[in-house]
Write a protein that binds this DNA or RNA. Sequence first.
RNA 1: GGCGGCGUAGCCAAGUGGCUAAGGCAGAGGUCUGCAAAACCUCCAUCAUCGGUUCAAUUCCGAUCGCCGCCUCCA
Length: 480
Amino acid sequence: MSLRVYNTLTRTKEDFVPLTAGFAGVYCCGPTVYDHAHIGHAKLYVAMDAVVRYLRFSGYRVKHVMNITDVGHLTDDADAGEDKVAKRAAAERLDPMEVVETYTASFFQDMDALKVCRPSIAPRASGHIPEQIEIIKQLLAKGAAYEADGSVYFDVTKFPEYGKLSGRRLDELEAGARVEVDPDKRHPADFLLWRKASPEHILQWPSPWGWGYPGWHLECSAMAKRYLGETFDIHGGGLENVFPHNEDEIAQSEAASGAQFARYWLHVNTLTVAGKKMGKSLGNAIFLKEALTKWSPEAIRLFILSTHYRSVLDVTDEALDAAETGLKRLTNTWRSLNETIARGGGEAAGLAEAAAAARERFTVAMDDDFNTSAAIAAIFDFCRDINSALASDAAPALGDLQRAQQALRETAGDVLGILREEAGETGDLTSSLMDIIIRTRANLRSAKQYQLADDLRDSLGGAGIELEDRPGETVWRRRE
RNA sequence: GGCGGCGUAGCCAAGUGGCUAAGGCAGAGGUCUGCAAAACCUCCAUCAUCGGUUCAAUUCCGAUCGCCGCCUCCA
């Protein structure tokens, strides 16, 4: 029983064997911080979050590095390409680094809200210019790059394995009619390592080739090497970045170091919105700040993780609503379980076995290339076991309840992050008032004044408080 | 045009060469309850189409139709 992962590099599922026993080095392509994060970012980073959390659950110490791209990401590859951050800065009349600060903060605010674990290190491209220049020097020294008019290009013909990740071949790329080929490029697939900056360009650094700035792909190579070493375990990212971004990372890193770059490549698929590609130009982008006003973070996570990470996920309001409702069941079970434990439990056995079985099913599913969908199925089945046990006349033994609690906390909570921990009610006055109201309503019910009792319940409902009559007691809670 | 992926119940979505095709949402019936809520029980699919391989295919192969991604920036 061990972890198997689908490696884009080999197009097969492989046993995960880390470079160093007990340690996993993970690099994931981060955002370009020129706008707020959208639901597509959430799919990638929630999926990768589950990967990282599961590795930790499995006993690995994980060093998770995720770059923040704040320079060099062009709007397109032709001569007319603009730096995305610079473009935004010009539009908003801000310093580029103000744009970067704003959207970096916004990104982490959204990721925190979604309970995505912070990376161990979140380095910025602009903070690693020397490291990037160093790689360019190595590539030039090895003849794998060439300088032309103050810019430096990677020479793809000098890296025979070019295309091994994406399955592309150079002759096909050449045939692919790219309309505007940079005349300085020797081969259409050659890519920028360093770009000469015009005098008015606001983001530029000195280099052996004059003032300029690094190419987009280079930052990942430089920062992965700096924080994880020349060879590391897992490189994650969006499927749309396989080519050219990841392919170019491999080319420049391996050509420079002579060593393998990432050993396992995990690619998270894209999503569609109501069946169509999401794009800002299409006007159907869903920003996380807006989505989080409609759905809970746990529901968004459940929705994303209900699909395998390599599958396309279609986003609709209905699907997210369904996830929210489904999550409520999990939340109810978790609450009932905790309440029963607080009361001390009973004598009945059996729940411990269910907990062990659920944990086993969960682990088997996650070991199989992080099959969160099957893992969630195991959790929901386990919820049924728990609910049945709690509803039966014989209350489960305390030890069994605690086993169940631990299993649920570790799987649904620690790994998937879909367990909602409810804030305890701290207002003494509120509690006292609710006690009075509930006692009053109980008296009305005893007197068979049902109309009045129901009015009371409806009024509380209007105020956001739900009542639940159970045998012998009534409990209340704020509506989620 | 090149490369890759997908098509499973009303919706979302796992999975397997043969044993009851997970799970969630919605729906139907029932239990419990004064009612409601919650919870539990029961019911609800032959896996796009056509052909092939096989003792046996939803699962493998081929074709067709439809959808999507990448090849130019997007996570």
